[in-house]
Amino acid sequence: MSTTSLLVRKDQLATTRLHTATDEALADGQVRVRIDSFALTSNNITYAAFGDAMSYWQFYPTGEEGWGSIPVWGFASVVQSLHPGVAVGERLYGYWPMASSAVLSPGRLSPERFTDMAEHRAALPAVYNQYFRCASDPLYTAGTEDTQSLLRPLFITSWLIDDFMADNDFFGAKTMLLSSASSKTAYGTAFQLHQRHQGEGIEVIGLTSPANVGFCESLGCYDRVLTYDALSALDADTPCVYIDFAGNGALRNAIHERFTSLKYSSSIGGTHVEQLAAKGAGKDLAGPRATLFFAPAQIKKRTAEWGAEEFGRRMVAAWHAFIATVSDAKNPWLHATHHHGGDAVTAAYAQVLAGKGDPRTGHVLSLYKQPASA
């Protein structure tokens, strides 16, 4: 057996190549999974853009200097097992390489999940090392795997952003400015913030490109949608929080310079990849310092405060409410497009990296070789 991977140049994300290697024999306690499908979104591009700074490249090291494997979220099936607690055929949801298969070292098993105990992952954030067993996973629903792959990791971040803001009393502001408003993590956050309107009077304003205004308005979770060049429509002294999903340094600077009552500036990721390293992005900003939001830190805090069971209960309830809205047959927010095989996966990656395409389209990819009859 062999594994095919899409490798990316760490310092030049548009440079990729397919790599196929013969699988090594499993060690005792390991399992091999076939990665059936995984989502590719701007979130994964953020993983690559911050790969060194936030250790994303370390989850699935390639062994080749300068080349990395971008982590992705999706579903896999156990095809070989030398672990007595994990059976061949078991279906898993989790954090994979962009590859056709992967090897895990399961530990800390429960009916719902286990942890990959591979030595090189021991110091990495625990949230990324957990694999969910679909048969007992409270977030899993059969028939919606594509939607789960596309939205589940992003929505958990969205839910945590909303919780972080509420945990800090929205830093004294009532207006939330969300850039890249058509992105999945942004509209997931807007969906959560929108629930607070009656109780806390939070106004959610989406910032986007002209082409995506209609899409953002159709979602119903933004009070207003503005194009990036229309910041003047808001009073300069509006007490506000900026939640930056775009990573566009020029936009960040413009917002910091315009809003004299900017209470907090939260950097989430980078959908505007070409601007991530923009000169002056984050340097000498007017107002508050742009602070990177790190979801695992909020998970750790809330788990300690609420307990793991209550944390899970709240998250599951929020997730099911979100999925019900997104999957509404009358107005679905998302349609999955499938890409199978090395060439198709490479092309889809280039498209997502370039930030092109319809925001209603979600990309679901697969690199494993299907049987000839499939």
Rank of each mutant, 00 (worst) to 15 (best):
H272I: 06
Q58M: 06
A126Q: 12
I323L: 15
R289A: 13
G287L: 09
S266N: 15
V213H: 03
F245M: 14
L234W: 02
S69E: 05
D237F: 04
I268Y: 01
N248I: 11
A297W: 13
Y56M: 09
F164E: 10
G63L: 00
S183Q: 06
A295L: 04
K283W: 04
G312A: 07
Q195H: 14
H335E: 13
E145H: 00
S69I: 05
A354I: 01
P332G: 10
S232Q: 11
L104A: 11
L276S: 00
C134Q: 05
P332F: 07
Y95I: 04
E64T: 07
N248V: 10
A27S: 12
G206D: 06
K174Q: 14
D23T: 11
R133N: 06
S100M: 01
K356I: 04
V364A: 08
S105I: 06
T325E: 07
T157E: 01
M98P: 03
E65V: 13
A290M: 14
I156G: 11
F293Q: 05
T147A: 14
E203C: 12
Q192R: 13
L234K: 05
E64G: 01
S55R: 12
Y187H: 15
G206T: 14
G220Q: 00
G172P: 08
T346K: 05
C216L: 01
A48T: 09
L26P: 10
K301G: 02
I243K: 09
L276I: 11
L262P: 11
P296R: 08
A49Y: 03
C221L: 04
L40F: 06
L18W: 00
G270R: 03
L7V: 01
I161N: 01
S265D: 06
D229K: 05
Q275E: 15
H335T: 14
L139R: 10
V103W: 02
A211V: 02
G282M: 08
D28V: 12
Y47E: 05
R34F: 09
W57N: 12
Y228G: 00
E145N: 00
A21V: 06
S183H: 07
V241P: 05
G74S: 09
L154V: 09
K330S: 15
L160K: 08
L226K: 00
M176T: 14
A308S: 12
A308E: 15
A354G: 11
K300V: 14
S77C: 13
W333Y: 02
D169G: 06
A99C: 06
A297R: 14
T291K: 10
R360V: 10
R9A: 13
D52V: 01
M165G: 08
G143W: 05
E305L: 15
S265F: 05
D137H: 04
R9W: 00
V78L: 12
P111R: 09
I205T: 13
K174G: 13
I45W: 03
T4K: 02
D162K: 11
D52F: 00
F164K: 05
A281M: 10
S77M: 10
T208V: 03
T337R: 13
R108N: 13
G357F: 04
G249N: 02
V86S: 03
F191E: 07
G201I: 07
A304D: 08
G66T: 08
Q351P: 05
H338P: 04
C216Q: 04
T4H: 00
K279Q: 15
P84G: 07
N44G: 02
V352D: 01
A308K: 15
C221V: 15
S182C: 03
